[in-house]
């Protein structure tokens, strides 16, 4: 008898759960319908053309994987930590690209974090005023800004003329056409992409928490380290992801400011496209895309997608 009652109760509950789940599914479908126009638009005008271009890697000029062969054919070997690693120009370019993107991301974070912190700590009206200084360069053409760096860094540029006039140097420094110039130009362009997400997250941090911690006797450094920094991490993750992935695709700045070894993947892809080797260009683009997706996956796995793109949860 007891068992029967239990079964009846169980069946009843299962029915309720099923009804509830049915309702929830219906509700979720409504949300899917809201997404539909944007999804259809993206698939038709973005997804399809990109896929059509990228799949060329597998059939242009002939079906097969031969477009990926140059990427894995060793032309030489490089000694690294006692291992000899097979090397070719394409692997080198991918490596250079990752290296440049990583340095740009780290330096942008180090420079951008204090700026975002200051912006989020002053009054809203003052922050809006200061924000103009972040946004004006953001709105200026990348090409113009790259040229401005050429004016600054040239052999007879402003920096060298000043150093020579001040008697600090007898010979001009080689600044232009170097990796340093690439970093400077790219960091300058990428800073707003770091500052804006950081600022958005930091604005959302409840300052009462900091005051409370102070009240309870935490010194300022501990307040920052144990309260503010962890709460600002979603902004750090979003900013770093944005800057890193945008940096992977840089083209004009390294071409104008870089030296002969500062070749990035997009320069190589463009070269293949204009040589009409579209299949190989597509293969390079596909590898770059997979690399970017892989890094995105790594970020979201380590930090959780909520943390990367969600707002700060206090």
């Amino acid at each position: 008898m007891a068992a029967l009652t239990h079964d009846l109760q169980g069946a009843d509950r299962e029915g309720q759960v099923a009804r509830f789940q049915h309702l929830r599914r219906r509700e979720q479908w409504r949300y899917v319908l809201l997404l539909l126009p944007a999804v259809v638009f993206l698939i038709a005008f973005y997804g399809y053309p990109v896929a059509a271009m990228l799949t060329r890697a597998f059939y242009d000029p002939v079906p097969g994987l031969q477009n990926f062969e140059p990427l894995v054919t060793a032309r030489s070997t490089v000694e690294f930590l006692g291992l000899s690693i097979p090397m070719n120009a394409y692997i080198r370019v991918f490596w250079i690209t990752l290296q440049i993107a990583a340095v740009v991301t780290i330096v942008s974070l180090l420079l951008g974090y204090p700026v975002a912190y200051a912006l989020s700590s002053v009054s809203a009206s003052r922050a809006n005023l200061l924000m103009i200084f972040v946004l004006i360069p953001f709105w200026t053409s990348i090409l113009v800004r790259s040229y401005a760096w050429m004016v600054l860094l040239g052999k007879e540029g402003i920096i060298n003329e000043a150093l020579l006039a001040a008697g600090l140097r007898t010979e001009p420094l080689v600044l232009l056409n170097t990796r340093l110039a690439v970093y400077l130009g790219m960091i300058h362009i990428m800073l707003p992409f770091m500052i804006l997400p950081l600022y958005a997250v930091m604005r959302g941090i409840d300052r009462n928490l900091l005051r409370a911690a102070g009240n309870l006797g935490a010194p300022p450094s501990a307040v920052f380290r144990r309260i503010f920094l962890p709460l600002s991490l979603p902004g750090v993750a979003a900013g770093c992801l944005l800057v890193f992935i945008l940096s992977l695709g840089f083209y004009i700045t390294p071409a104008l400011l870089g030296g002969q070894k500062d070749v990035m993947v997009s320069m190589l892809i463009q070269q293949q496209i204009s040589l009409l080797k579209w299949g190989f260009g597509a293969a390079l683009a596909l590898v770059l895309l997979i690399l970017a997706l892989g890094i995105y996956a790594l970020f979201t796995r380590v930090l959780g997608v909520e943390r990367v793109f969600g707002s700060a949860r206090t």
């Binding site: 053409s141 040229y147 401005a148 004016v151 402003i158 004009i252």
Partner: peptide
Amino acid sequence: LTRRELVRRYGAAAAGVALLGPRAL
């Protein structure tokens, strides 16, 4: 560089830089 883009904007960019810097372009 980007062919169409860079080449077309070269003039505009040069003018922009001339405003910023002493001689440059």
